[in-house]
């Protein structure tokens, strides 16, 4: 039972984001790639928000988002993508998958925390 799942194949980013969110009083779980993330989202219906990397092995973030919507039929989970680039094609795909926001790396906690709390609360 957690509020937020952080999905990133880089343990550095994963730990940094998780630690920051935990320090701000949020309950957090994490996953190492899209497939792991999808499994954990399936298992935990209490999750409110997924903070997810785009490029990951096994299953990328956008595919995972599409599967959350189409396979799990989960429309309530907010998904925010962590990215280094933002092309129109990506945005288009993200829009279709109901991506709520794009955080361009590096992750800056103070810029996102108030919005994240709003999404989770």
């Amino acid at each position: 039972m957690a509020q937020i799942i952080v999905i990133d194949d880089s343990s550095t980013v994963r730990n940094e984001v998780c630690d920051f969110l935990k320090a701000n009083g949020l309950t957090v779980t994490s996953a190492v790639d899209g497939r792991d993330g999808l499994d954990k989202i399936r298992a935990d219906s209490a999750l409110k928000l997924a903070v997810c990397d785009v490029n990951m092995p096994n299953m990328d973030g956008l595919t995972m988002a599409e599967k959350v919507r189409n396979d799990l039929k989960n429309a309530s989970l907010h998904i925010i993508m962590l990215t280094t680039e933002n092309s129109p094609a990506m945005k288009e795909r993200g829009k279709a998958a109901g991506i709520k926001g794009w955080i361009v790396k590096p992750f800056n906690g103070s810029a996102v925390i108030s919005s994240i709390k709003k999404l989770v609360g």
Partner: peptide
Amino acid sequence: SACIGEDLMNFEFNE
């Protein structure tokens, strides 16, 4: 790119 055409929160994320 992340801000335009997206929810205002994206501006806060990336400002």
